[in-house]
Write a protein that binds this DNA or RNA. Structure first.
Length: 330
DNA sequence: CGGTTTTGACCCGCGC
DNA sequence: GCGCGGGTCAAAACCG
């Protein structure tokens, strides 16, 4: 199987300015709505998929999300049956955001989220039979985003990923897409795939098999937070390179989902959109199918091979967001 | 050779 | 104050 290399990321100041500006601007973008004020020159191109999505999507809008994320939300611990791990912020201002995601591991792998992480530590956690928690930092030196990955105490198949801080940049793929005419973009080189580590490596083969077979992944719970880091988009990039001659309709559908991801990325944890990581999880043969799951109080999405290649059912449900901010009043 | 991972040591906050 | 546990540092090892 041919390995598709990914573009190497270049943290240009220019793009960062663009991103930083975009963060505030995009923050007002509707979740997925044809009324979206699509920014930039790509607006007209994005309108069609956007409309497509809005016709298929009946979920919450950005207002719903903002409302849910608002600190005015009542104590979700009392209402969320999926509340698992309060993630108290240690000191105001120390971290902008902090929230945890529980995800069912895909063959033991840790979900790829579109960002590049560097491991800087590992600890054995007491009273947890699954021995270690890994600490990761965003490789962008100007980004303070961090994440912790550990296996659930109750279910070894579940991973708890705790994100802290916001990314001040787009995920790798997003940088590429946003600068299609930029000559420097053509110089961008394909970033090497983050090296599989530990269990990820062990299940590498299994993972690729499950991707081609009965891929089905579930993001189970999200706790706490004001916003989320960016999103994974690698699947589409690889898809494009692997299947450049895809039909027009498929292209539109893929763009639709892709655009949806772009809108989502500042709001919804990436894992929901690409919980299974390695990009190859989404191919032209197995486009996304996000299933609606009537489970309140947490994100829930799954991916499965569709019966029809063009059958994309956007139904990401974001019923409630959990804001578990805890102030330490000691 | 540069970037990433590993891993023991260190630091710090919290509870007793 | 002390011990414990979580988070981070940093040097060495590893890898492409």
């Amino acid at each position: 199987m041919a390995q598709v290399k990914e573009p190497e990321i270049c943290w240009h100041d220019e793009s960062e300015k663009e991103v930083l500006g975009g963060l505030s601007a995009d923050a007002s973008l509707p979740f997925v709505s044809s009324k979206a004020a699509v920014g930039g020159t790509a607006g007209s191109q994005r309108h069609i998929p956007n409309t497509l999505i809005s016709s298929a999507y009946s979920g919450p809008t950005i207002e719903d999300i903002e409302r849910a994320l608002s600190t005015k939300v009542p104590d979700v611990r009392a209402t969320s049956r999926c509340y698992r791990a309060p993630v108290p912020e240690k000191g105001i201002g120390k971290s902008d955001t902090k929230y945890a995601v529980m995800i069912k591991s895909c063959g033991g792998g840790v979900a790829e989220d579109g960002y590049k992480w560097r491991k800087y530590g590992q600890k054995t956690i007491k009273n947890n039979p699954n021995p270690s928690r890994s600490y990761y930092r965003c490789t962008n030196p100007r980004c303070s985003a961090k994440r912790q990955v550990e296996r659930s105490k109750e279910d070894p198949n579940m991973l708890t990923i705790t994100y802290e801080g916001l990314h001040l940049h787009y995920p790798h793929f997003h940088v590429l897409r946003r600068r299609p005419q930029d000559h420097t973009a053509t110089k961008l080189q394909v970033p090497k795939k983050p090296k599989l580590q530990g269990e990820e490596q062990l299940h590498k083969d299994y993972k690729s098999q499950s991707i081609q077979g009965d891929l089905r992944e579930e993001v189970v719970a999200v706790t706490s937070g004001e916003s989320s880091p960016g999103s994974p988009d690698r699947g589409f990039k690889e898809e494009a390179s692997l299947n450049p001659g895809a039909g027009k309709q498929n292209m539109r559908l893929r763009d639709a989902v892709q655009y949806q991801q772009g809108l989502l990325q500042d709001i919804v944890p990436l894992l929901i959109r690409e919980p299974c990581s390695t990009g190859s999880a989404v191919s032209s043969h197995h486009p996304y199918r996000i299933l609606q799951t009537p489970c309140p109080s947490y994100y829930s999405a799954s991916i499965s091979p569709p019966t029809n290649p063009s059958d994309i059912d956007l139904g990401l449900h974001f019923r409630h967001s959990l804001n578990l901010r805890q102030s330490k009043d000691r």
